[in-house]
Nucleic acid binder design. Structure first.
Lengths: 341, 341
DNA sequence: ATGAAAGCGCTAACAA
DNA sequence: TTGTTAGCGCTTTCAT
């Protein structure tokens, strides 16, 4: 049978309380006592029973991570980091997928997890500020992603305007002038990346050309490909650069360009967003905005911990990002390998 | 405060036991009683406390899923399915990553999770049959992946020999004769995919050419690219087809071929293994062996459930797969789009 | 600084 | 068929 706290106490010749004190790092324990207890723990091979601990502490011991889909590489990578950050707080992570379904997203806000979890890290695709504001569930919540939340809950983000601006400026620095965007539309409220796109162009005195902007309704490669197909069919002269909302979309865009006989980056330079693992395996490798995912995860978990301790002023938490330049903007004929690889 | 079982009982005017019976689907409950209790549950908004339930039941309520890396798309996708299958058994999934580190893999066998979990789904990259046989931890264990396990534990797999055979036969059916393999080596014990490769060639009277086989030491795209570079540097005539151990490796191989001025599939057809989500976004889209991941996950979780109920004859559990044909073997100049997309 | 004992919310003998 | 009650293993007042 598995050793319990009492077994350790018996072995060390002390009470359960003392063992508990040692385990939980209570300060007022003599060094000798601590050593004796630790030895006993080691001898009997004690491991705390988390169900019992959580029951006694009145917490669930787990948090929910709600993402659109785990097999979307950005979220896979993000989840990885959340798992690591949560583990340090003694939390197990219950991953839930919404598959971009508005109903499922609403269920999260409605308390679908009941009080089963100590907190929720939520990356919404559909629900907006109003729905979030009106939620009744009191479970600590932290939001991720580009959608604005107007201070209704903690929100961990990168500065999407600045990031998009940086990506587009990079294209302009390369001498490109007809810079398209897949994934807009420009001007609709809250699309920060579109804002950065427009800002970068405007600063150089280039007007935003609506013909060079095609919105997509999901982040899938297929959508990106179709969008690029549509744009090319419509234009007499193709763009000389494309800024894509996500890397996955960018991969589809590159497919489309390739199938239309356009070379990347020679004819058209392409920048993505997210820096998914595949950006180094694609042909050409993909220039992309790389958000500091580890920081996103860390801040999200820290937010939940703070909320659990009573903190309750919703905060906007900003984390870093960088532009990683690879072949899709820097290569010659797709045959050179830049250092960034 | 969160409603408890007692609150439901009070509301319904019955005892806790009756409520518990209803919740746990005990058979001998009158319809009227059941309805009354369900109504009460609904009225007070009761949700069971899992810590308490698990403590009382003497189980942890969670299983561990140990994979090399969650942001490798095959494992991301697999994890997604495991989450779903486990949820149906009332299990939360604690995902752990080994990053292919032999030490971490051994820690899993040594009981790093203590008795913290009710079972372990383990996808090993390094540890072998012997180490698994010698483990002392009694936690139910089920293994995934190609590595053979000689009946030391439950093992969920596809028939890797048949799958590789199918992939290579497909290449031969296309008229290719110099079929290379990235990820061997042929003949080393237990590499089922290599076996299938050799079998398909032999059946057609083609000898395995050692010059056309290059092993890789990880499944990363970079490795595949380097391996293909090496092969091309060595050969006077390039192969006309390549069978790759994984899709990720295949992406790297395609990069290498492209950078050497070889067209896929015109000059060289490429088949991957795993059918990761990106195989439809790459240029060209990737022909691949697609294991029935949902079945893998389902069987793995079922295995743990069976072991927990006392079953203990290690079983080899086989699940299905299929070959998905896409542009990397079927396209013309990479410009045609086959129906398989 | 350490010990004794009362819960945490649920399940499952055992009774009725 | 339904009720009573003793744990499950841990934390945590409250004493000492």
């Amino acid at each position: 049978m598995r050793p319990r706290l009492q077994d350790v106490a018996d072995r060390a010749g002390v009470s359960m309380k003392t063992v508990s004190n040692v385990i939980n790092g209570y300060v007022h324990v003599s060094e000798a006592m601590r050593a004796k207890v630790l030895a006993a723990i080691d001898e009997v091979g004690y491991e705390p029973n988390l169900s019992a601990r959580n029951l006694a502490r009145g917490r669930a011991g787990m948090i929910a991570l709600v993402v659109p889909q785990l097999d979307m590489p950005y979220f896979a990578s993000l989840s990885m980091h959340v798992l690591e950050a949560a583990e340090k707080q003694g939390w197990v992570v219950l991953i839930q997928q919404t598959r971009g379904d508005a109903e499922k997203e609403r269920a999260v806000l409605a308390g679908r997890f009941g009080q089963r979890v100590d907190g929720i890290v939520f990356s919404p695709l559909r629900v907006g500020t109003d729905e979030i504001r009106q939620r009744r569930d009191r479970t600590p919540l932290v939001l991720l992603g580009e959608r604005p939340v107007d201070g209704v809950a903690d929100h961990v983000v990168i500065d999407n305007v600045a990031a998009a601006d940086l990506a587009v400026s990079h294209l302009l620095d390369l001498g490109r002038r007809r810079v398209a965007m897949i994934g807009g539309p420009v001007g609709s409220t809250g699309t920060h990346r579109s804002e950065g796109y427009a800002a970068a162009l405007t600063r150089r005195g280039i007007a935003v050309d609506p013909d060079l902007v095609v919105p997509v309704h999901s982040n899938r490669g297929e959508e990106g490909e179709a969008a690029m197909d549509a744009m090319l069919a419509r234009l007499d002269t193709p763009p000389d650069a494309v800024f894509c909302m996500t890397d996955w979309v960018a991969l589809g865009v590159i497919r489309s360009l390739h199938l239309h006989g356009l070379r990347v980056p020679d004819d058209v330079a392409v920048v993505g967003f997210d820096d998914i693992p595949y950006s180094t395996a694609s042909t050409p490798t993909l220039t992309s905005i790389s958000p500091d995912r580890a920081a996103v995860a860390r801040e999200a978990v820290a937010s939940l911990a703070a909320q659990q301790k009573g903190e309750h002023e919703p905060r906007e938490i900003e984390v870093g990002f960088e532009l990683v330049v690879r072949e899709s903007t820097a290569g010659g004929a797709g045959l050179r390998r830049p250092a960034g690889r």
